[in-house]
Amino acid sequence: MTRALLIGLAVVTTAIFVVVPLVYIFVQALGAGWSAYAANIMHPLTLHAIWMTTLVAVIVVPVTVAFGIGAAWLLSKFQFRGRGLLITLIELPFSISPIIAGICYLLLYGRQGWLGGFLARHDLDVLFALPGIVMVTMFVTTPFVVREVLPLMQAQGSDQEQAAVTLGASGWQLFRRVTLPNIRWALLYGAVLATARAVGEYGGVAIVSGSIRGKTNTLPLHVELLFNDLNAAGAFAAATVLTMIALVVLVAKTVLEHRR
């Protein structure tokens, strides 16, 4: 009795709370038919926003992965002073709202900022350009790979690596032949989560990108611009692209959870 009641309650609330908002995106986007939908997706500014978001993810995710592997190696294989501080710094971006991160970057790289004068003299664009968007996104994705890989590397210990070193393996061989096969699923899992986060980042990017149409506008920012233009169909069409990425991420995550 209780069982049926609780399951029923869980299903109904989740349907209202989560499923309907998800379905509604596609209902709204396809409301005017497929050809209108296709036209909205193929609009040059929407295509450019898709390109920008792809570009940011393609730059940020490999860096996050490389950083994550390095940091996890450092924190699991070596004992040193300041280790706790490094862990705190890695976890910090989880607690700090991306909008605050954006403000930090603006204060640092903006015209009035510390580095603003230097950048202006050398004609370097960080804010309202790709580097700013990429760095703020990196800030946000910092903990994603470390968090998945570090616990695994700690649990597995260093015995296998030490054996390999004794047998004369070089550092690179050691990593590629011994460590990587052990952590590959956790690594992929972290990379998938980081991709979702990088693609969807909004608040921080909204501040540093300036949302210049056809230039620095990423897809989530483009959704907002179209919405403010009262172009709901266009906004929902752009949103379906992000939603489909989210669904692919979810499937990949579920598959990887069983592999880990």
Binding site: A196, E201, P220, L221, A239, L242, A246, V249
Partner: peptide
């Protein structure tokens, strides 16, 4: 879903 879906998309919907 709420972690995978960009917050802007959630807000829009």
């Amino acid at each position: 879903i709420p972690f995978a879906l960009p917050t802007a998309v959630a807000g829009l919907s």
